Amino acid sequence: MKKIFAGLFLVLSLIVVFSVSASTPSPKVEINGVKVYSPYNYQKKGTVFVDVDAFFTTVNQAYAINRTKKTVTFEKQTIPIQNFKEGYVASFDDLVKSVKGAGYTTMATKNKDGSVYLLVLPKGVIKLTPSVPKMGEHWAIPSTMPLGPIYGVEKGKLVFIEQMPAQEVFVTGKNIVNLDGMKGLPSPSINHTNIEYQKGGHEGYLVDHYDIHHYFITPKERDAIKGDMPH
């Protein structure tokens, strides 16, 4: 009888464990607003672990896994990995460290619900302005201005990319081709685009021109950005 009860207890314990694990969703992992899909993403004691293959495939850059040493190398940055089910995972913190160490401009956000977001911008990108109402912060490589692009960031998230072609370009009928975008890095789909004429220009570019914003967020989300400076 004791063996029967012990067996039942074991079965019930396994059912409870399975039910808890099955009902606990994988943490939401995003890079530039693009989801990193994998059944291997999980959270343990406050640490988020991410499928290594899924992460670097989303980053869209080359990487190499050493299965013997249990490491992954990304542009000469090597971090530890561990087996999980049929794949390999690494902590979100270590993955962020590897991307930042390779020279990319990064910003990591961890939320109370366990979700994580990694902003990855091209190498050399720096912050140019505080958050502008209905836009966000402006980040760019200064030497590439005014066509940039400029990257819009709000609360650590990518919200737009922008180019600022001079009015003269259109008046004289010149072509503008092969403008840089995300330089191969992950990018969400464009929700809408605003083309605004700037007579006399504005601070940083005092030339008649157009501000062309390609937004990754909705107009409602855009208008909700309060900003840190006057528009």
Rank of each mutant, 00 (worst) to 15 (best):
E137S: 04
Y88H: 13
K110I: 05
F74P: 10
T78G: 08
Q77C: 11
W139V: 07
A140D: 14
L118S: 10
V72G: 09
L128T: 11
G101D: 13
P130I: 03
P142M: 03
D94M: 06
E75R: 15
K85G: 07
G87Q: 03
P130K: 15
T105W: 02
A108Q: 09
Y104A: 02
K85Y: 13
V120F: 07
T144A: 09
Y104G: 02
T109V: 14
L128P: 06
D113A: 05
N83P: 08
K100P: 00
M135E: 14
P146V: 08
K134C: 03
D94I: 03
M145L: 15
K97V: 01
P142D: 01
Y104W: 00
M145R: 14
N83G: 15
G124M: 07
H138K: 13
A90L: 08
G114H: 13
V96H: 12
Y117M: 00
P80G: 03
T106P: 01
S131L: 09
S143G: 02
K100T: 14
I126Y: 05
V96Q: 13
V99K: 02
K110S: 14
Y88K: 11
H138Y: 12
N111L: 11
N83W: 07
I79R: 06
L128K: 06
F92D: 05
V120G: 02
V132I: 15
V116I: 13
V72H: 07
P133T: 12
M107P: 00
V116D: 01
P146G: 06
D94E: 12
Q82T: 15
G114P: 12
D93M: 08
V72P: 04
V72A: 05
T78R: 03
T106M: 01
N111V: 03
G103M: 08
L128R: 04
F84Q: 09
T129L: 03
V72T: 03
G103N: 08
M135T: 06
D93R: 12
N83V: 14
D94W: 06
F84H: 15
S115P: 01
G124S: 08
S98Y: 04
D93V: 14
K85M: 15
T109W: 00
H138R: 11
L121D: 05
Y104F: 15
Y117T: 04
V132Q: 06
G114C: 12
P80K: 01
P146D: 00
P130L: 11
Q77L: 12
K110V: 12
M107W: 12
G114R: 13
Y117L: 02
L128H: 04
P133K: 05
A108H: 03
A108P: 14
P80Y: 02
L118T: 09
S91L: 11
T78C: 09
A102C: 02
H138I: 10
I126P: 11
K76L: 10
V120E: 02
F74M: 05
M145W: 07
V132P: 02
P133Q: 06
D93G: 11
V132T: 14
I141L: 11
I81L: 12
V96T: 15
M135I: 10
V125F: 05
I79G: 10
L119M: 10
E137K: 04
T78A: 04
Q82W: 07
F74R: 04
M135H: 14
P142K: 03
